[in-house]
Design a protein around this nucleic acid. Structure first.
Lengths: 154, 154
DNA sequence: ACGATATAGTAAGGCAGCCGTACTATACTT
DNA sequence: AAGTATAGTACGGCTGCCTTACTATATCGT
């Protein structure tokens, strides 16, 4: 540990000589994006979702998925994922239906409200990335470089 | 909420047409960096620090700081910060000394082990950023672009 | 000088987000 | 049919954060 004055949520950290360590750059941007995302979702009527729910929205494919596979995809325990899913089911974003091919399993599938939320998120993302595009000359280039790095890491 | 197949911890998310949403790019990189940081610190004998402790290391200046100001700088409650500090004090990374100018206050100052940890972190950061530099052509350029964006946001 | 008000830090309790262990029900294998 | 593996759930725990409430010291106004 120990980053000292460098992990930076405050602009103070960004002021030193040379470029700051990477977390000081990634963290505020990610926080901004996620916070704005939730704010804009709230404005659109989706005020009952939390950050952690993202793991569900991200990983449920159109045809549905089992809890075990979902937990696996999100790299979480079944219990943690199970609670998020049950919460979203209770709120009407997803449904759990029996898996016709396996009596033990249930398929987690999108419900109407979930699909609406997904469409809203796509809109919001477009909006946010538009804002960012105005802040820098080549936002698409930035994303492509990041993509290359991330691909190389995995 | 709702990001669906886009927040990406898995490379699967990164495979679609167009560039993925920003969180799918920032999140894995940040996770990689922070995980490697802790791993390399553990290798160097600093195995008793957690991610949350970063907030302390980052924000304590050389001359020391009061809990209230520290909590403020890290944008956390005094209680949350107080627990992290007490933990690090117990582990020998920091000390709490009475503030000579205010009988209510205590100054949180670096202890020997804390300074060693800080030096180790600087080394580790150098190492990690070196690794990243080999994965992309212009890592410094990437950081500068990110810095510009982050500055513009705040 | 003294009472009113503000501030530094601590205590107690709560909630979210995650985990591991252990269990039940169903499925597969032989 | 017996034995083993797998899907999901229950229970309890830890971390990371918060709010509310309190104690001790400082400071300000009269």
């Amino acid at each position: 540990m120990a980053t000292r004055r460098f992990d930076a949520a405050t602009e103070g950290m960004l002021a030193g000589p040379g470029t700051p360590p990477l977390p000081a750059l990634l963290r505020p941007l990610l926080d901004w994006y996620q916070t704005r995302h939730l704010e804009l979702m709230t404005e659109r009527g989706f005020d009952d979702v939390r950050r952690a729910h993202n793991a569900v929205f991200i990983h449920v494919p159109a045809q549905g998925i089992r809890l075990t596979d979902l937990a696996d995809a999100a790299d979480q325990s079944k219990q943690a994922m199970g609670e998020l899913v049950d919460d979203l089911v209770a709120k009407g974003y997803f449904e759990k239906i029996p898996d016709p091919t396996d009596g033990r399993a249930k398929l987690i599938v999108w419900a109407e409200r979930g699909e609406e939320a997904h469409r809203a998120t796509m809109e919001v993302f477009g909006h946010l990335e538009g804002e960012l595009s105005e802040l820098t000359e080549d936002f698409e280039g930035l994303k492509e470089t990041l993509l290359a790095v991330v691909r190389a890491l995995s």
